[in-house]
């Protein structure tokens, strides 16, 4: 893009040194985690090197079985996909309304959603439990999914609204002239143009839903309904932490998120182009 700066080879070198430096600091914890997942408990603390003396691959099978990952993995997958689907759907609808439509109370409602992000609620778990109990949703999958959708909405609405605001008015008008309804404009014009924002929302919420375990512990008493992170808790006792199995389990759970990100980041690409207006 900025051709002129690339002529300065010195600054080019500097750029690469900087990028590689930042990259190393980001990679170090990942490598340490993987290395530790192959060590024995005492080796983690006595031998800090990143290359295990003995590779103990059995940590992975122990973590998989001990943490009941088989059951939990499917649960987590279901929760994550469902939560993300509804967050994307509901937040894009609301953001579209806040950005492109006019109706009384629009601003108040929008700032209400934003305001929710600001106030930290002490004892929010107790409140959620009380509400879910009133709805008889304790120890159900729905009871676990609904609060998480709700928690993801404000930020997603705000982010998407920012992106919808940038859609040129002409595109909307030409769609209207073609006889598109509001829903059709939303579906055929707005959503496709906000692909990168949606990718960001998917990544953010996948991360938080996939890593959630506090709410799960609060509302589930049935172990068969629990998500993956609960399996990791097993290795973190009150006093004793089984680091090798914990790291093995974490490597497995983190891998999923990284794969999701790898897949979604392909959508963080050129959004609005002239071609989109014509098509």
């Amino acid at each position: 893009m900025y051709k002129n700066i690339e002529d300065l080879s010195l600054s080019k070198l500097g750029i690469h040194v900087f990028l590689i430096g930042v990259s190393i600091s980001c990679l170090l914890p990942l490598i340490w985690m993987i290395a530790s997942s192959l060590k024995t408990q005492d080796a983690i603390f006595t031998n800090m090197s990143l290359w295990p003396e003995v590779f103990k691959f059995s940590n992975y099978t122990e973590a998989w079985k001990g943490g009941r990952f088989g059951t939990y993995f499917l649960n987590s997958l279901f929760y994550t996909v469902t939560v993300i689907f509804f967050i994307v759907l509901f937040s894009s609808m609301a953001a579209f309304a806040f950005s492109r439509l006019d109706f009384p109370g629009k601003n108040i409602l929008f700032y209400m959603f934003i305001g929710v992000m600001m106030i930290p609620i002490p004892g929010v778990f107790v409140a959620i439990f009380v509400i879910l109990n009133k709805l008889s949703l304790i120890n159900t999958r729905v009871g676990y999914i609904l609060p998480q959708i709700n928690a993801g909405l404000p930020f997603s609405i705000y982010l998407l609204k920012t992106f919808f605001d940038k859609i040129p008015k002409e595109m909307e008008d030409s769609a209207k002239i073609d006889g598109c309804s509001k829903w059709q404009i939303y579906w055929h014009v707005a959503l496709p143009l906000a692909k990168s924002a949606i990718a960001v929302i998917v990544i953010f919420n996948a991360l938080s839903t996939w890593n959630e375990f506090l709410l799960a512990n609060l509302i589930f008493s049935d172990a068969d309904l629990m998500p993956l992170q609960v399996g990791l808790l097993k290795f973190q006792g009150e006093r004793v932490t089984e680091y090798p199995q914990l790291m093995a389990g974490m490597t497995m759970t983190t891998a999923f998120i990284i794969v999701t990100y790898l897949f979604m980041q392909r959508f963080i690409i050129k959004g609005i182009t002239a071609g989109a207006v014509k098509g």
Binding site: F86, L89, F90, S91, M93, A94, F96, A97, F98, L101, D102, F103, L109, M112, F113, V116, I119, I121, V124, A127, I128, V130, I131, L135, L146, P147, I149, N150, L153, I157, S181, K182, W183, Y186
Partner: peptide
């Protein structure tokens, strides 16, 4: 139609946030 866009988000908001606040 305009309101129908925000209804789902609003329902969840009402269930989980109003009582809490």
């Amino acid at each position: 139609t305009s309101y129908s866009f925000i209804v789902p988000a609003l329902i969840l908001f009402a269930i989980f946030n109003i009582y809490t606040f």
